[in-house]
Write a protein that binds this DNA or RNA. Structure first.
Length: 764
DNA sequence: AGAAAGTAACTTTTT
DNA sequence: GTTACTTTCT
């Protein structure tokens, strides 16, 4: 791993100040690059040159001879970020970066470390990394084995619970008392123990374990930790605001050596709280790392003044933040556009039209991104783009390695490699159909468990007896014979050749060839692509290790396409023109955030909105609709509170059509209109509804007296404060405020809600 | 065992 | 609207 020729090691220290890589850095960036000693936190706002600082700092450490390439630990969150850093450092120091063996994601580096010390946590260094699918199936087995009702206590719930515990650095014995009761009347911790024991038998670990085992090793074996203290002279951490507790503990342990830890991040862009990320980590950095320097990067090189102003105004509503003020020397540019639209289809049509206009003006499709809160929102845009013939690509969509056919194929390969991989065995014994149904598999599992052997071994025994008969028996016999044969071939054959043979001879490819569903062809293509990708690795092991930690294959096609993606996927990217559709309550902020997480998760939604706006360089267009199809039902929806929070100075709600206005200062529902936005205050909502509805036919359908916005809007005085009403979903309630069609109702059970009057009726 | 039909549940976001 | 899962039937 550390095999770089001596000639490529530390280059002679360049006199500081003359180093060309420092040219063009602003004073703050330069300070962040040059502050090499002790802990440093770089608060890098959106578009302030974060990656540049990170890579230049790395180059600087090398160029000044402070450390050699393998003495620097650089961690990122995603593989993409790691790749980008490698590339850019390579360009800066003008040589290959194979010499940076410790640049990678938290998970890949933890996996490397774990391989070297696996025996210290009772694993073999050949351990496999389970994907979420395997994990869930394990959970399910355990829940069933323990006789717990899996309807009430789903494997998925247990999975995310255990995952959460791991993210907080809790091994089964450290789970706090009150947490144990979250699952199945106190069985949670016991199930966690059983799960870990199963993993150990399988010589496997899940994503969370990679970090957690590292922690266990470091805590129980100070000598090992010291080894890494000596090894890592500098630590660099990207996206620090996204670290969870386990990652934080891991970093803190490692930093005890040199104390030279530099974390780069932006608390305003912390959007992974739902996955265990702790904004707190970045908020308390100075406390955790005494003597830390904090450097703020606030000069933005990406967006226009208005875009920054709109984003700043929005994020100012958050309380838990360190506070930064982005500024730019660029033009103010044009204000952020905010537009209300009738429904989702019309929204997609509008976005499509705007895109065509932009392109007609000589700009490129690839300048444009459409950023949505959740992936289900993409379909409307895909539909529309397809009809218009607009070239587009979905970024971060269905992941290659998560597709069923790829997982099936991997299960075959894993099984050929080691026949005791029960999870793989179970996955594909009967794919394609071999007559081995559920009952046979149950029997195998039971025997295997009882005898402490693998399911493949159990199968070998049982096919010789009468325990399993009929088609299951012959099917298993053939399957076992094939496995043996392939295992033998593996000794001599190239792994990608073998892969092809396994897939063919097992009947797996044939299964898809005979499948007549439209996706079948794509699946066969994926399998071909899989075999091709395998060829790029030296061995099956190397390949499997890689895919376990990577979610996507490099997709090279950089055509001239509009990018369609979720807001999460957009972090770190930028586009001249950005569309932000779906800014409605319950969509964005999402219902889930509204229901569960309280203020914290609402603030996270707001940060997501902030991330969205700050992706735009020249122009940002926010849209919201009055009606949206959610869960297959038409619902009337209200503009997002984030729309109200946009400062009128930087956001423009007036629109060219007669549609009307809403938007900044849209008279937010019963509350005093935003004073900053008074110029926008207007009784626009009703006019907007009336106007739009007139221009539209048919959609959304008017169902069962619902969605009759027009009627209800016009009969504005049907309800008054104090009236008792009934709502299908929320039950009985008392009207608190009535503002045209919009009611604020205090429901007896559901609490205070804002609803449109067509959804309530008189008491039955 | 396997296919068809009917049902619940649900949609974030990723290593 | 979809998908994953369960029940029912052959």
């Amino acid at each position: 791993m550390n095999s770089i020729p001596l000639s490529q090691q530390a280059r002679p220290a360049a006199p500081a100040g003359q180093a060309s890589y420092l040219d063009g850095l602003n004073p703050e960036q330069r300070a962040a690059v040059e502050a090499l000693d002790g802990p440093v936190l770089v608060l890098a706002g959106a578009g302030t040159g974060k990656t540049r600082v990170l890579t230049t700092r790395l180059a600087h450490i090398l160029a000044t001879g402070r450390a050699r390439p393998w003495e620097i630990l650089s961690v990122t969150f995603t593989n993409k970020a790691a790749r980008e850093m490698k590339e850019r450092v390579g360009r800066l120091i003008g040589q290959g970066v194979e010499g940076l063996p410790w640049l990678g994601t938290f998970h890949s580096i933890a996996a490397q470390i774990l391989r070297r010390h696996a025996e210290l946590v009772e694993l073999k260094s050949s351990y496999t990394i389970l994907d979420t699918d395997d994990q869930l199936r394990l959970m399910k087995q355990i829940i069933q084995a323990e006789g717990i009702d899996e309807k009430r206590w789903t494997p998925r719930f247990l999975g995310s619970l255990i995952d959460g515990w791991k993210n907080r650095g809790w091994t089964p014995d450290r789970v706090p008392e009150d947490q144990k009761w979250i699952f199945a009347e106190g069985a949670g911790q016991k199930l966690y123990e059983i799960y870990q024991a199963r993993l150990q038998v399988l010589n496997a670990c899940d994503f969370g374990d990679l970090l957690l085992h590292n922690l266990t090793i470091f805590q129980n074996h100070p000598d090992v930790l010291r080894e890494y203290h000596r090894k890592f002279r500098y630590l660099l951490v990207d996206e620090y605001q996204d670290t969870n507790v386990a990652q934080y503990l891991w970093l803190r342990l490692l930093a005890q050596g040199s104390h030279n830890i530099c974390c780069v991040g932006d608390d305003d862009q912390s959007i992974y709280g739902w996955r265990g990320a702790e904004v707190d980590n970045i908020l308390k950095f100075e406390k955790d790392f005494p003597g830390a320097k904090v450097i703020r990067l606030e000069r933005n090189y990406r967006s226009t003044g208005h875009i920054l102003g709109a984003a700043a105004g929005l994020i100012a509503a958050n309380r838990a933040r360190l506070g930064k003020t982005l500024w730019t020397e660029d033009d103010p540019g044009e204000k952020v556009q905010v537009k209300g639209i009738w429904d989702g289809e019309a929204e997609a049509r509008y976005v499509g039209d705007e895109i065509e206009r932009w392109v007609k003006d000589g700009r490129k499709h690839s300048d444009i991104a459409v950023l949505v809160r959740a992936s289900w929102q993409m379909r409307a845009f895909e539909d529309r783009f397809l009809t218009l013939g607009l070239p587009y690509k979905v970024v971060g969509g269905p992941r290659f390695f998560e597709r069923a056919e790829i997982r099936d194929a991997h299960a075959y390969f894993r099984l050929v490699r080691s026949s005791d991989d029960d999870l793989a065995f179970e996955r594909i014994v009967n794919v394609p159909k071999r007559g081995v149904g559920e009952t046979s598999v149950q029997k195998l599992a039971q025997v295997a468990r009882g005898a402490g052997i693998s399911m493949a071994e159990a199968a070998r025994m049982l096919v010789e007896t009468d325990e399993i008969r009929g088609p299951a028996r012959t099917g298993l016999k053939v399957f076992l014979r094939d496995l043996d044969r392939w295992a033998q071939m593996a000794e001599t054959m190239r792994h990608d050749e073998l892969a092809e043979i396994v897939l063919d001879e097992s009947g797996y490819t044939a299964m898809w060839r005979e499948d007549k569903t439209p996706q079948a062809a794509g699946r066969l293509d994926n399998l071909k692509e899989l075999v091709r990708a395998m060829g790029e690795y030296d061995s099956l092991e190397a390949y499997l290790e890689h895919v376990a930690l990577v979610s996507d294959l490099d997709t090279a096609s950089d055509g001239d396409e509009v990018s369609l993606m979720t807001l999460h996927a957009a972090k770190g990217l930028e586009f001249p023109l950005v569309f932000l559709p779906g800014w409605e309550e319950t969509v964005f902020p999402s219902q889930r955030a509204l229901d569960e997480g309280g203020t914290a998760s609402l603030e996270e939604e707001r940060r997501l909105a902030y991330v969205g706006i700050t992706r735009a360089r020249e122009r940002a267009v926010i849209t919201f609709t009055a009606n949206r199809m959610i869960f297959g039902r038409w619902q009337s929806v209200l503009p997002s509170r984030f729309v109200d929070e946009l400062p009128a100075d930087h956001a423009d709600a007036s629109s060219e059509t007669g549609y009307y206005d809403s938007g900044p200062g849209f008279e937010g529902f019963g509350e005093p209109a935003n004073p900053m936005a008074s110029s926008y205050s207007s009784p626009g909502w009703r006019r907007y509804q009336a106007a739009t509805n007139e221009g539209r036919k048919g959609s959304p359908p008017v169902i069962e007296g619902k969605a009759k916005l027009i009627d209800s809007a016009e009969s504005s005085s049907k309800w008054r404060a104090g009236d008792r009403v009934f709502h299908d979903k929320f039950g009985y309630g008392t009207v608190r405020r009535a503002d045209g069609a919009k009611l604020t109702v205090a429901f007896d059970k559901a609490g205070e809600k804002k609803v449109v009057d067509s959804f309530v009726r008189e008491l039955p």
